[in-house]
Design a protein around this nucleic acid. Sequence first.
RNA 1: GCGCGAUUAGCUCAGUGGUAGAGCACUUCCUUGACGUGGAAGGGGUCAGAAGUUCAACUCUUCUAUCGCGCACCA
Length: 1197
Amino acid sequence: MSLNTSYQPKEYETSIQEIWQKAGVGKPEKHYQKGQNDGKTTHTILMPPPNLTGPMHAGHSYQHYLMDTLSRYNRQRGKWNLWYPGVDHAGIQLEGVISKLILKGEFDSIIQEKLTGLDFICKEHDKVASIIEFDGETILREDLHTWLKKNHPDLWLELAWSKVNLWRDNQKQQAQVLGDTPDYSRQLFTLDPKAVEMVNLAYIKYWEDNLIYKGAYLVNWSVGLQTALSDVAGEIEYETKVDPFISFYYDLEEINFPGDTVPESTAQILAQTIQETLSTIEVSTVRPETIFGDVAIAVHPKILEKLISEKKFSQQIIDLIESSKLDIYYKIATLNKFKVKLIISGEVDPDFGSGALKITPASDITDYNIWKKYLQNDIPVFPHSIDRSGRLSLSCGDYSGLSVQTARIKIIKDLIENGQVPFTIEPDLENGESELKEFEVLTDQELEKLDYKKQIEYLAQLYPEYKVDWNYSHNVSICERTKTVIEPLISEEFFLSFENKAISTGKNLQQHGLEGVGEVNFYTPDFKDRATNFLENIHDWCISRDVIWGHKMPVWYNLDLNSGKLFFDFNQMESEVEIEGQNHLVANLFKVQVDKPTQPGNWVREEKILDTWFSSSLWPLSTLNYPATQLPVHIDVQEVTTENIQPDSKDCVFVIIHNPQTDQFLIQVNPQDSIHSTKYHLLGRKLKAGENQVAGIFRELEEEAGITSIDPEKLKFVGNYKIIRTQNKNNKELNIELNSQIFYLPNQDYFDSWLDSGNGKQTTKWVERSDLIANLIPAFTDLIESLDGIEKHDLPEIFYTYPTQELTTAKEIFYVWVVRMIVLSKYFTGQIPFESVVITPTVLDETGKKMSKSLGNGLDPVEAISNYSSDSLRLAMMAGMYPNRNMRLGGDIANRAMEKYRNFGNKIWNVARFIELMEEQNPADSEVESKELSDASKWILDKFISLEDSFEKEVLSYELGHIVDDLYNFLWDYFANWYVEYLKTEPSQISFARKLFTQFIKLSHPFLPYETEVLWKEFVGGNDLLVFERYDVNWSRSLQTPSSNNDFENIVSLLQNIRSTRGLFAIDPAGKIKATTTSKKILEYQQFFHLIGKVEIKLSDNSNSAGYLIKIEGHDISLDLLDYIQDPALEIIKTNKQVDNINKQISIIDKTLANPQFIQKAEKEVIEQKNSDLESRKADLGNLNLKLQFLKSNSKV
RNA sequence: GCGCGAUUAGCUCAGUGGUAGAGCACUUCCUUGACGUGGAAGGGGUCAGAAGUUCAACUCUUCUAUCGCGCACCA
């Protein structure tokens, strides 16, 4: 006996983890070397790069366990499995964390060291310095981080990097505790050179495709973070706030009839009407401080109709306004610098407020849209009332510089005092005076000292009669990270267009995305609709941020000529622009490129940083080496001539034909093994008189494949090409130049399908323009495969691992990350980045709340593992693995779940122990290699096969929870509870038991990697690690024999029945019961019955009528219970209950069967089922009645 | 407000158009050999509510309620 009595994970987990890491189990190459796979089928999972900040939480570990389990499973099934790890630089978030650390004084000593002349002045002992002095300048502690960012960005970055490197290590260590096996030899940090290269490449390609532009745009500006936020990234929260909702009048300022199209007399009448009925317009707002930014008043036509009392004029006025023949302007003399225009719009809700809406394009999205629609031509530039610091701008006169809240109070007060605010509709004059409370009247200065709420309360008391709802509650957007207010502002930002057609593909990103989404499988499937819906309504993506941590854009400006740093989109590059009275070619002013510009000039780089998601959306490409910097061979495409094609070469040759009508291409690829036919097809084609290449090919197609639908005369021959290769010439990119367009990206799967469809022979098919190159890829891959001394797997991963298989992700980042990856990968490669998206459950705490750092209700995986084990935590989590559901796993719930699986682990361990023990006790039996399988062994084998079946089925839908249940139930309910007990009576099956159990260890390895690895070594005696073992899916089936008359299931039922009878009669569990049977089969299990049922069976010719009879499927056992019955009266009551219950069931079935509708309409099988149910129910009833009889006849004993 | 998901035993969750399931917890009992991190037998549910479709509804449809998530938002 080498195994301990119980499994102690702590003794093993740490060392196993080290062994795995040392053995490089994450590296697919290792598994390949060991022959676990042949390298042909790949399985790739890209790890969603976690943010650097903070320790690993439950959500991370959940993802990791899932990815690891899937990886292990696929390795076992002989796949070349790559699980690619990485870390995200988390732009804004990390910047926030570093700022906090600076605030706390974490970096004080480094800062002091690096900046000579800087002093920290500490006012109080034991506290961080609150004032910093530098060269006579005084900086407050709270401003230190922004000061550093602004004046010493390099130092700020140095501080950040020092933490980043530390956190990366910590994170890796934590991940290893889980038993993670990603390939750490390949990891990527999103600021690594490889990622930077991809970002630059992407940016330039977008720009060259006319997808990037810079413009005035309404963005969600976080006052706290001083940056634009994404409205889909969860960066914005909504909070209900209470503010005053004030109504006020705009006064008529001007009436114009532009174009003089209205007769003078009519104009006069109309003007008079307007002056009489529209001298003021009432609007309402919670944001009176934005009045300075107003450009218009929008009124619903119905409302205007009502206001103009004379109906004969109202429609005329509306028509004139709408056709721009009448302009009416308003103004509040005390506030507005500019007059605002009256416009009519059905978009205004006529039932809300006064039905008139003030239009402030600089501060509101709907207003902005209305401005764009109606006013952009008239008012190309609109005023901003609020600046980026959240204060009123210079255009606000006396109010400029005030905070929003201060200004709001002041303006409300001024509006009221200037008589711009209407009275409430029915002022309660009678009781008004007496109800007025006494309150202290404050001066303006005193008022200002109060906080915002108090000020409002005061005004509410002071001005009860005005039309102001002082307690109006509404939703306000809040910055998720800093909890400061979000101001919708116009900001100069960079955008990636989803609308512009990309020059290279002829499609816009929205289209690419929609195509991609259509091809991806989503678990659960409803996410396909969500993604589609999202893309259908998508707007351009604001990709720039005003932070310093992240990717800089590869954008340069020539300050000598372009001091204003004007940005140009691709279409403008060839044009000349006039700047400062001079004409310049745009190309001289501005450059998008990776390296520093080489042309003379004072070039400076754009300072804005790319949104973190910009690099994240390129994740599949950057990880898998899309830029392909390390390609060992150079590949080029040449036009084929008689000189450069050689019959014995391994060149791939293809012909391309263009159909201008459909803009499709026909490509015909000839793989290497048919080079002779290639030569024939391309060059030696026997053309008929007057026939060109194209016509020749089509004639052959017609002859060979019966394709007749295309008119060859209309096609254009693009050319014959061959792919040539040379030694690595240090080329940076793999590319094909074809018709002077550069294409990228070979792909493995196309290669496979190509060969499949073409059987290694010539293949011809039509492809869309955008798919042209993707369809040529097989030819490359073929070529690369054939290179001497170069293995496919030495090539950049993207050659053979793309598209990847699963992307596992939490639903929170579905739109912002997953959908974008689909869009952009599709755009770059023509293919989706991953075949399946698996939405993992959200891990909730005990009370059903989402786990979060701020609530502190998270499950700490490291702690959980140290209390239980990694395997337990993994099983507990995977047991809840059903895509897109929630899972409660916190506190006691988590503990209970982990206990369950700790016990499971122990059970497995003890089964192994038992087998070892049996082998020691029965050395002769255990050594016998092949013994005929007994019924019981066949029975357990069948159970195992159905376990395997459901395993394979469930893994396809990622419902791993079922697999965990199935593994648990097989091992415990079947193997341990019955088969192990059986083995005690039949040691001859022990060698089979070992084999089957060994197979179970392998099968369950992805779910209990540590323990199975231990057992593999200590119990199975494997030479190598279990991780490197391939799972033989045919093993179990090869042993299976067509089972007929396997009675073991019945034996189990009989024993269960005996056990419950024991319980029923409250018979001493250890007490032996004598019994007789007429079945010889049962007698074969004499020992088994003795062991499990404590029943001593003898064969008898007649069933013992005095005994208690149990009958199942022709087997009978009569138990002699007379000596054991303790309280027959109680049992009679219980049994009667059962009889009642069965009678109820019988009557239900009877009713159903008596229903003519049922007999008529139900399926035959169902009716048969019902009948057999009825019979078995009746049989049960018979048994129970026998029992009752038996009990009654003995009740007086 | 719109959309999505959930609602099944005390708890955590599976499940299915044709007699309600698991684990934990609970009750009673069992301890000298694989395992007390174990074994046996039990109790416990009008499957959130209502209506509809159906021979038959926990399952399908609609509505309602509650919870959660996502999106948007009203001056």
